[in-house]
Design a protein around this nucleic acid. Structure first.
Lengths: 341, 341
DNA sequence: CAGATTTTGAGGTACGTAAATCATTTTCTT
DNA sequence: AAGAAAATGATTTACGTACCTCAAAATCTG
C-alpha cells in the first residue's frame, strides 16, 4: 500500500500537523524536526498524492499563453491547439488564458507580461521576442514563482523552466542534408526564401542549411535569401523570379511561412524536371503539395505537442513534480508523402 | 465553478443517491428518472471529477504488458520503457505487470493471456502474434471489460481499443522513397536484409519498400531479401556477402534488427563510395553509425511514446474518458545525423 | 384497496491531503 | 527559575465522489 501522511507522521514520530507543516513548508518547525520528517519521507518512499492534494486545495492551474497574433499558418495552428487545450481544462484542472500580441512587437509583449504581475498565474508559456525588457519581465515573473516556458523560440542563455520548441539550427541542417542528398552530387543553384532575417529562428535555419549543404556538396551555389515576410504573395513572386531567372535552379528551400506562394509558383512550372523543394510546417496546403509531388519534404514541429508539453511542464513545475524529458522533447519531424500522419 | 454531483442532483430534481445510481449505473432507477438526470448532465455540463472518484474508490489501474523476451534491441528498449513506466506507477495510480513470452510463440502468448482471465486487469497491452487463438483470447478479455491495446504490431481487422505502433507499410515506403531519392536516378542493385518474412511487420516493410522504389526508379534492382532472424552475426555475414558479391551495390536496407552486424560490415569496407544504408530503430549503435556516416538514415518508432500512449489509452478506455488521438499517434521518425534527439 | 414491490430519499463514512484552531510542551532569555 | 517565545500535538472541517444502510414514498398486482 502506498504510504499516506499518517504513515509518514507515525514513521517520523511526529504529529500530522508537523508533517503538514513540513510538506507545505509552513513556518515554525525546528530544522532537526524537519530533517527527521524528510528522512522518513525517503525511508518509507512517501509520495504526496497530488490528486488528493489538489482536491483538498480546490486547486486549479491558471496558465497563460502569450502568443503572436497574425495569420501565419503556424501561429494559427498554435492558437488553435491552445483553444483545443481549453476544451480539456475542466478535466485537467487548468484555466487557460490566451493573450495575443502583435508579432515581433517587443513593447506589446512586455506590456502583456507586465499585466500578469497583478494576478500571477501558475505558469506562463510565451513565444518570446528576445529583448532585454522581455527577459527582465520574464525574470520578474519567475522570481514570483511563476513557471516559465518558452514556446517555439527560445531565449538563449535564459533560465526558463522549459523550452517547448525545436532547435532551428538542426532543422536547417536537416533541410541542408536532405537537399544535398536528394541532389546527389549534382551541381547548380539553390534558391532560399525566408521570412525575415531579423528573426532568430530564420537566421538559425539559414545558417544550418548553408553549413550542411557546403559540407556535403560545396559545388552547390546558394543564392542570397529572399526575404518575403511570410507573405504568400511575395513568396510567389520571389519563387517565380528564382525559377525564371536562375539558370540551373536545382533546389528551393522556404525556411519561412507563405508556402501557398511557393506551391503556386511551382505548380505553374512547365513539365520537366522540378527543383527539389523543401519547406516548413505541415498544413492542408503543404500536405497536398507533398502528396502531389510539388514539394519533396516538409519539416515540421508539432504545434499540438508543443502546447500539451508546455501545459504538462507548467503544471509539473508548479507543484514540483518531475517531468518526463523524452516525452516533452519536440521533434523535428521530417515528412515525405509516405509518412504523413 | 465546475458543477458537482450536488449541483447535478439539484438541477435534475432528484436526490444525491439517485444521481449516484445513474452515474455508476446501479440498478433500481426508473428509465424516466435516468433520462432526467442525463439531461441535467448535458444541460449543466457536469463532468465527473475522475481524480476525486479514484480517491473515493481507492482505485488503481492494474495494467498488464505482454511482450516478447529476447535480446532484439527494440524489444529490449520497449521492456526498458515499461520498467520506466513502473517507476511512475505510484504517481499515476497504475500497477503495471510485465509478462514476457518467447518471441513468435503463439501458444505461449495464448497461455499468458488466458492466465489473465482469473483476475482481469483494467487493460492489456500486447505485442501480438496473429493467430486465431490469440484473437479469441483477446476477444474474451475484451468481452469481460478489459481495454485491449495492440503494441508495435497490429491485428488487422481486430476490434482492439487502440493500436500503439506504426504503419509498417508506410515505413517501408518511406525507406524506399529515401533510398530512391538519395540515389537520384543512379542505377544499380539494392540489398535487403530482413528478420523473418513470417512476421507481418517485416513483410509490410518490404512490400512498401519495393513498391515505392519501383515507382520512383524502376531501373534499380532489388535483390531478394536475406533473412537473418535479427541476429547480428547473420546480418554481418549477409551484408559482407552483398558488399563483396553484388557488382554495383548502391544501397542496402535492413528492415529488421541486428544492425550491429550491418554496421560492422559497412565499417570494414575499403574507402570509396559507400552504398546508401537505411535501417530501423535508433539505438546507441545506430546513432553512432549515423553520426559517423556509416548509416544514412534511421527510421524509428519511439518505444517510450508507445508505452506511455498505451498506458494513457488503457486508463482512458477503462474509465470512459476521451483520448487525444493526435497525441497517441506513433510517428514514423526519420533520423538523419542532423536531427538526432 | 391491501399488500407486495420498486423506486427514491436522507444521511453517514471513507479516500488522502490541506488548512485551520487551540492546547500543550519544549526551548530560549535574562 | 520564571516568563516569553517557539515548536509541536490533537482535533476538526473540507474537497468531490463512491458506497452503504435504512426509511419513506411511489407504483404495481390481483
Amino acid at each position: 500500500m502506498r504510504p499516506t501522511v499518517h504513515d509518514l507522521a507515525q514513521s517520523a514520530g511526529v504529529s500530522l500537523a508537523t508533517v503538514d507543516r513540513v510538506l507545505n513548508n509552513r513556518p515554525g518547525v525546528k530544522a532537526s524536526t524537519r530533517s527527521r520528517v524528510e528522512e522518513a519521507i525517503a525511508r518509507i518512499g512517501f509520495v504526496r498524492d497530488v490528486a488528493a492534494a489538489n482536491l483538498a486545495k480546490g486547486r486549479i492551474y491558471p496558465l497563460t499563453f502569450v502568443v503572436p497574433s497574425g495569420d501565419n499558418s503556424f501561429m494559427v495552428s498554435l492558437r488553435h491547439q491552445i483553444e483545443e487545450a481549453k476544451t480539456r481544462s475542466i478535466a485537467e484542472r487548468t484555466e487557460i488564458v490566451m493573450v495575443e500580441v502583435p508579432a515581433f512587437d517587443a513593447e506589446a509583449l512586455v506590456a502583456a507580461l507586465r499585466a500578469l504581475r497583478n494576478d500571477p498565474p501558475a505558469g506562463v508559456a510565451v513565444v518570446a521576442v528576445d529583448t532585454e525588457e522581455v527577459r527582465r519581465e520574464l525574470l520578474a515573473l519567475k522570481a514570483s514563482g511563476v513557471a516559465i516556458v518558452t514556446l517555439v523560440s527560445d531565449l538563449e542563455g535564459f533560465d526558463r523552466d522549459h523550452f517547448a520548441g525545436v532547435d532551428n539550427l538542426a532543422a536547417g541542417r536537416t533541410a541542408g542534408s536532405l537537399m544535398a542528398r536528394f541532389l546527389a552530387g549534382k551541381t547548380g543553384r539553390i534558391g532560399v526564401i525566408a521570412g525575415s532575417m531579423l528573426v532568430r529562428d530564420h537566421q538559425d535555419r539559414l545558417i544550418g542549411f548553408r553549413e550542411r549543404l557546403a559540407e556535403i556538396n560545396p559545388s552547390l551555389v546558394i543564392l542570397p535569401a529572399e526575404e518575403c515576410h511570410d507573405d504568400p504573395h511575395r513568396v510567389d513572386a520571389a519563387a517565380r523570379r528564382l525559377l525564371a531567372e536562375a539558370e540551373g535552379l536545382v533546389g528551393i528551400y522556404n525556411l519561412g511561412a507563405g508556402n501557398r506562394g511557393l506551391i503556386a509558383a511551382l505548380s505553374l512550372m512547365p513539365s520537366g524536371p522540378r527543383p527539389v523543394a523543401i519547406a516548413h510546417e505541415l498544413t492542408d496546403h503543404t500536405r497536398a503539395a507533398l502528396e502531389g509531388g510539388v514539394i519533396d519534404v516538409i519539416l515540421n514541429q508539432d504545434a499540438g505537442h508543443e502546447v500539451r508539453a508546455a501545459i504538462r511542464v507548467m503544471k509539473a513545475k508548479s507543484d514540483g513534480t518531475p517531468v518526463i524529458a523524452a516525452q516533452e522533447r519536440i521533434r523535428i519531424d521530417i515528412f515525405l508523402k509516405d509518412n504523413l500522419p
